[in-house]
Design a binder for these strands. Structure first.
Lengths: 222, 222, 222, 222
DNA sequence: GATGAATGAGCTTTCATTCAT
DNA sequence: TATGAATGAAAGCTCATTCAT
């Protein structure tokens, strides 16, 4: 067809014989999602350029579209991927029969905390909060699959504690939210403002302080 | 990502006669910042178009540049404006001498809560969290002017409580963070995920549950 | 916001004081459609770049999107605009009472030909043919508003000629198509292959030859 | 513009056993050209993706480049291939000595028509018209090899008819074009707008009406 | 030969910003 | 001051073409 110039740069023939690219079909989506997660988390969805995601994943822009329909799809895929990690965790931590409600809360919290630190799952809250209005489907999904079940689990433990006389009379649902708030805050803060703080705190000490105060606050007087 | 909805108000079909009063020029920047705050809060900085801000403020795009150097400046101005509201609040609530540490915490919390609900100040945490990495200066400013002083104030009260034997032995700084977390979470959640929840909670009951548990958790056994 | 460099080229201060652009709100759409029509006609819809259209209309790419939603919209607008020219023509040529069918055919043809040559209307057939499958709505519209009425008009005249004994027995609908074919071909050819022909023909002589043969062919023997 | 439809054929769910015959390599180019012709004809050259051509030819994108240098080459090859079919036709219809010019015109037309309907040759006019400006070499080739010889052949018959007194005095070149126009229009229309018409016409009746009128129009009065 | 993952140039589209009015 | 038409840089996305497999 008329008027198409080939502007190929002559490749340096002395350059090392590295292939221009390598096939990585199976690994690519994960590599891309990892890169995108890091950038979306830091800069937000809109402010992140696909070019930067591509560069961080060591591919070119075009490659992104082999694996994801568009930028939105990439975002949603990555959230779903992060959420799916919860399933395997849930299965692994099923056998949590404890003698007391407070022990159960301790067990759950420590267990979760390890998981949140090791996986991408703990990065989702900051992302969800920032993009909630722009991705209502994802927000609703996260609510239904993560937030509500987690609250319910904690509320159930607290209910049992109240029923057995171990805990004081409180609304278990509200108490569950209060119990989860410091964990939620830690995750949100960590991926946003915390890098700008001069003094870093020790996450574990923070959580232990939280558990000490809150469980103490839930316990009925002996 | 959600398409940007055109939410233009239906234009008044009646030929408006000479208005009885004319908007004072000096109100324009505030109107623009209000419009921008609402949209930045909902959609984030990058995903919000100046055109939408202008429409919400009933001006045209060009007008924004009369009052603000650029989009960044508008964002920073609006955060500073929100932060400045804290000063007048601080002054109003200075005389907070209480007989006990727990009463002081209750007083401070109730006082703050009223303020956070009435002003734009309570909208800042969600915004700061979302845009932290993109506006490091603002983030640092917010840390220094808001976060650190607030934590310090709470930590001081807790320190006094510990010193007087009213509270148990905890790290006051960590305890202050734990104490603030449920409030922080409430504000963050309210402007992001909460609109998607089927069951709304009553903020006041939530805070009271928090205070009940946390202050109970801080109190030394009688 | 972080990381946005201003890369404005310093304008030559000695350059003439021509304004960078001039407001032409009312004229722009027509100018753009004219440019687009010429390029779509020559290269086809897909092969035409918006950049070229903009250049031909002496605007920048961005300006196109002030007046048209997207490239498709520009195409469709321009076809509709071309079709709308037919309405004013129709009105102007309404009083066509003739003594004989053959005179009516001559009158209509000459009239149409002048119109087709003077307006953009005559450029539509080539465009419609090339893009028919890609713009089914436009194709259907053109069929209903232009093709079918035009055929019907000619068929009606032929019918009357047959009824009065002036013309031989033929299917008026098919005869109408045969009658229109040379005109259609001329228009299609003119904007595609004709520029590559070494010997140009005189359009008027071609049409007169057509009329001479075809009307002669329709006339019943005396 | 119409979205590109994925028209993948449902894959055969039965594990195909060893086929009784294997496709000969030499058929591949033809299969690819067939697929490409169909899609170029419908959507135009630029709007047709090589991926769609490959899918229709049951090969993959890369395979196209084994047989054709690039997309342009595929287009040109396919036009040349279509044109080459004319040669074998010409040879088969050489012996066309007739007693009268009108009989010769009838014979030629009927002969051509059969050929145009059976081969891909009749699809070229629509393609050439649409892509003329983008492929000047092809356009020139088609003019020289097809258009001009065909016109010349018809003009020659008409000349002889005039010389023998069988036909009226007309410019044979122009008359040839007029004579060919309905055939040309039929072919062009068939592969563009015709699929959108509610009432299909019978091609043969149309051609017969054309021959009836036009030959009648050429014949000198007895 | 055949594949299809990867490339990269180039396209359409967006939108913060400018500036003639 | 206020407007909004126009700009132009940059974003998202497409797709012909290449090349490791």
């Amino acid at each position: 067809m008329l008027d198409r110039q080939e502007k190929r740069q002559a490749e340096n023939p002395l350059e090392s014989r590295e292939p221009r690219w390598r096939r990585r079909k199976d690994d690519r989506p994960k590599e891309i999602m990892d890169a995108a997660l890091a950038l979306f988390l830091e800069n937000g969805f809109s402010a992140t350029r696909l070019e930067d995601i591509a560069a961080r994943a060591n591919v070119t822009k075009g490659t992104l579209f082999i694996y994801f329909t568009n930028k939105d799809d990439l975002f949603q895929s990555l959230i779903r991927e992060g959420m799916s990690q919860m399933d395997s965790f849930r299965e692994a931590s099923r056998l949590n029969v404890r003698v007391s409600a407070q022990e159960t809360l301790l067990f759950i919290t420590n267990n979760w905390w390890k998981f949140l630190t090791d996986s991408d799952f703990g990065k989702l809250p900051k992302l969800i909060i920032s993009e909630a209005a722009n991705f209502p489907d994802i927000t609703t999904l996260y609510l239904e699959q993560v937030v509500i079940p987690t609250r319910a689990m904690i509320a159930e433990v607290i209910s049992q504690g109240i029923a057995s006389g171990e805990f004081i009379q409180v609304d278990p649902k509200l108490a569950a939210r209060v119990f989860l708030a410091p964990l939620f805050m830690l995750l949100t803060w960590r991926y946003s403002v915390a890098p700008f703080e001069k003094e870093a705190i020790d996450d574990l000490e923070y959580i232990n302080t939280h558990l000490k105060i809150t469980i103490q606050g839930l316990l009925a007087k002996a």
